[in-house]
């Protein structure tokens, strides 16, 4: 199948970027990234500069890959990362526009590669349970209902790819931040630090320059792990709970 690609090229963070057109001969069994591999090999052979993009595990779990494909982060398939998107989702002759994640808090490093270290800094602001190695009691000493454990897992499934930010009309990182807050808020282990955690993580999120949530739901629609907006509701609840607390 013949694919016409229009790809964002930008030399580095401060350079002016622009779209460039390419043609690729793809096979329906290729993954979207393998199509880029083919493009890059042909560019290298022609002595042209290949397209830089983030990727690593290529099995949908590391969260590195990040392309906005025809206006959708990770492309048209529900619950699928770019690396797991296959060319059979497209038609011969299709024109595909590929852009990087765009947000002030995700500055472009090169071409389609963006700097998502803001996500790490949000996690560092309390996205953890304070427990030293060796300190805990027996794992079964804290019973946790299956429903709570399962729901906590739903939020813990976040891979930190940033598609939520990329899809949000406000470039908000609420779903990302809320996933961690919600995960830990549902577990008894997370309770002692719940107030500080939500306050600090929200402050960090705002401070990185992400937008605010206005409940569009685009984040959940784009999330490759299909994390629901209930996470955001839970963050809001935690935030108010912390707000009315005297401590």
């Amino acid at each position: 199948m013949k694919i016409k690609l229009t790809v964002w090229r930008q030399r580095n963070r401060n350079a002016q970027g622009a779209f460039k057109d390419y043609e690729v001969e793809a096979s329906p069994d290729m993954s979207f990234l393998e199509m880029f591999d083919v493009l890059n090999e042909s560019l290298i052979s022609k002595g042209e500069e290949p397209v830089a993009f983030d990727h690593d595990c290529r099995e949908g779990i590391c969260g590195a890959c990040s392309m906005v494909i025809n206006g959708s982060p990770h492309g048209p398939r529900q619950g699928t990362t770019t690396c797991q998107l296959h060319m059979r989702s497209f038609q011969d002759g299709d024109h595909i526009v590929v852009e990087p994640w765009r947000a002030r808090a995700f500055p472009i490093i090169k071409d389609l590669v963006v700097d998502r270290s803001s996500f790490d800094r949000i996690q560092q602001a309390g996205g953890y349970i304070t427990v030293n190695t060796g300190a805990p009691q027996d794992a079964n000493a804290i019973p946790i209902g299956k429903a709570e454990a399962d729901e906590a897992f739903d939020y813990a499934a976040c891979i930190g790819c940033g598609a939520c930010v990329a899809a949000c009309p406000n470039a908000s990182a609420m779903l990302f931040t809320a996933s961690k807050v919600a995960h830990l808020s549902l577990l008894p282990q997370g309770a002692p630090e719940r107030r500080d955690r939500v306050r600090r993580m929200v402050t960090a999120m705002d401070g990185e320059g992400f937008g605010g949530c206005t409940n569009h739901g685009e984040c959940s629609a784009a999330c490759p792990k299909e994390i629901g907006q209930d996470a955001i509701t839970l963050l809001n609840r935690e935030f108010m709970r912390a707000g009315v607390s005297a401590k």
Binding site: V97, N170, H216, E218
Partner: peptide, 28 residues
């Protein structure tokens, strides 16, 4: 909020497809 939201994406997409949001939500 609107100010912050607009600053959060200084360079827009040529195309951003909506999947779930509504006309009402976008025109608040």
């Amino acid at each position: 909020l609107t100010n912050r939201n607009q600053r959060a994406r200084p360079e827009g997409y040529v195309k951003l497809r909506s999947r779930r949001t509504t006309f009402a939500a976008k025109s608040m």
